[in-house]
Every structure is written in C-alpha cells, then in structure tokens.
C-alpha cells in the first residue's frame, strides 16, 4: 500500500465511540466584542452535531476557530488529539479536518476538476484511482458537465458544490460545514443530506451550522444552541429542536 495512503488511512477513527473533535472553554473576542465564550463541545466518531443560533450568535466564529482560521482568545481545540493552532502538530489536525465554508473559496484560474486534483495532492490522497474517484464524485454532485469550467463560469450553487467536492475528495475524519445549504437547490440539499449520512455511517464526525433546523432532522444526533457567543442549550437533537421552537429562538 502507498505509504501516503497508509498514513492518511490511519487517521480514521479506531473505535466508533472515540472523540474526534473537542473544544474546551473556547473563546474568541474581537476587541471589546466577545463573539464566543466558553464553548465546550465534543463530537464523536459517527456523530453529527448541529450548531444553531441566530445571526451574530457566534456560529461562524466557532467554526472558523475550530478549523484554525481564527486564533482563539481562550480555551483550546483538539482535532483527533491535535491542536490545529500549534505548528507542527497542526499539520496532523489539518490532515483530519475538512471544511466547507459559508462562501466558496476557489481559485479563479483552476477548473472544477483541477480544484479536486489540487486538494487531493495537497492531502496526499493520490493513488491510481484518483481520476476515477474524481469522476464519480463529480457525477454524484451533477458537476460532470461543468468539470472544465472556471469558478466565474459557475452559478453560486455550483461553486458551493465544488467546494463541497473539495471537502469530500480527501479522507478527512472530521467534516465541518458552515451554512452548507446556502445557495443549494432542494435536490442538492437532499444529496448533501445523503452524503453527510454516508460519512456518519463511515465513522466520520460531522459538525455543521445552519439556520434551517428542518435540514438536520434525522441527521444531527445532538444540537448546541449559541446565543450571544455562549451555549444557551444543548442535548439530544430532538429535545433541543423542541425547546428551540418552543422558545422561538429560530
């Protein structure tokens, strides 16, 4: 077996109960504004956690801090046991993480297929079947006809799908999605639901933020409600959903 493949494959969880993502007392401030305070969160292998909250509640800040795009003001993050904010161990955290940001971040001069090639190369996920895997993934996301298109030639939804494909082409153990259904039509939302369910069944941890609580019904195992940057409620998804609707938070 290719050593790179072997190394990446070993990032997958050994047991379904293992905690793949953990934050403790995670906080982030922008000057005087406290955007996130004391977030304690765990996501286990094969589990999906939905992070919900109103605009400005700190969801995106939490996601960006967890994946290493923002530096935490307090607390710590562990992804598969590694700190994504401290080099060189952050390399290992990044190997286990895949992010789908709220707006697509793509190269202007790379086609859809080239994006997937680059991401696979950068994550060491290269083997003889790479072309086949890319072709299959593009077909599944209805991107085959657009695989040689540049981002500027794509609609918002197609760009979002490309970003999603970039996250799925690599063998990540932890999938973090920030408002993933924005810009997606209902069939694409259903496909995303299916893809995330598959990743859950494969033992990956999924953390996603959304305003559409109906989307995560049946997908999320637990829910965390953020309000003013702090955890206002958490628990099994069905209960959190019920309380959230009863209190009119969303």
């Amino acid at each position: 077996m290719n050593p790179l493949r072997r190394a990446v494959a070993s990032a997958r969880p050994a047991a379904p109960s293992s905690v793949l993502l953990e934050t403790s007392a995670l906080g982030r401030s922008y000057g005087r504004l406290v955007a996130l305070a004391g977030l304690d969160l765990t996501v286990e292998a094969g589990e999906c956690v939905a992070l919900i909250g109103a605009n400005g509640s700190g969801k995106s800040t939490a996601v960006r801090t967890i994946v290493g795009l923002l530096e935490p003001s307090d607390g710590r993050v562990r992804v598969c046991g590694f700190d994504p904010h401290r080099e060189p161990e952050a390399e290992q955290a990044r190997a286990a993480l895949a992010l789908v940001p709220d707006s697509p971040l793509l190269y202007d001069d790379l086609t859809v297929r080239q994006h997937l090639e680059l991401v696979a190369l950068a994550h060491g996920a290269v083997d003889a079947q790479l072309d086949t895997r890319i072709t299959l993934l593009l077909a599944r996301l209805s991107l085959t006809a657009r695989e040689d298109f540049l981002p500027r030639e794509l609609s918002r939804g197609m760009r979002q799908k490309t970003q999603l494909a970039c996250a799925l082409i690599r063998p990540a153990s932890v999938l973090v999605l920030d408002e993933p259904i924005v810009g997606l039509d209902p069939p694409a939302q259903a496909l995303l639901y299916e893809l995330l369910s598959e990743r859950k069944r494969a033992g990956n941890a999924v953390l996603l933020t959304t305003h559409q609580i109906a989307f995560v019904d049946g997908l999320a195992d637990r829910g965390v409600v953020l309000e003013e940057g702090a955890v206002a409620d958490e628990g099994p998804w069905a209960q959190v959903r019920e309380r959230t609707q009863a209190r009119g938070w969303l």
């Binding site: 790179l4 190394a7 997958r12 793949l20 598969c80 046991g81 994550h123 290269v126």
Partner: peptide, 17 residues
C-alpha cells in the same frame, strides 16, 4: 484520543507534488 496521521516526510512529499 491521539491518532497517527500523515507523517512529516509524507507532507513534504505532498508539497513537492
């Protein structure tokens, strides 16, 4: 739980690739 993932040498090779 700490898992062993892609080695540093592997990452250097990825960068070269």
């Amino acid at each position: 739980m700490a898992l062993t993932v892609a080695s540093s040498a592997g990452n250097q090779r990825s960068l070269a690739a």
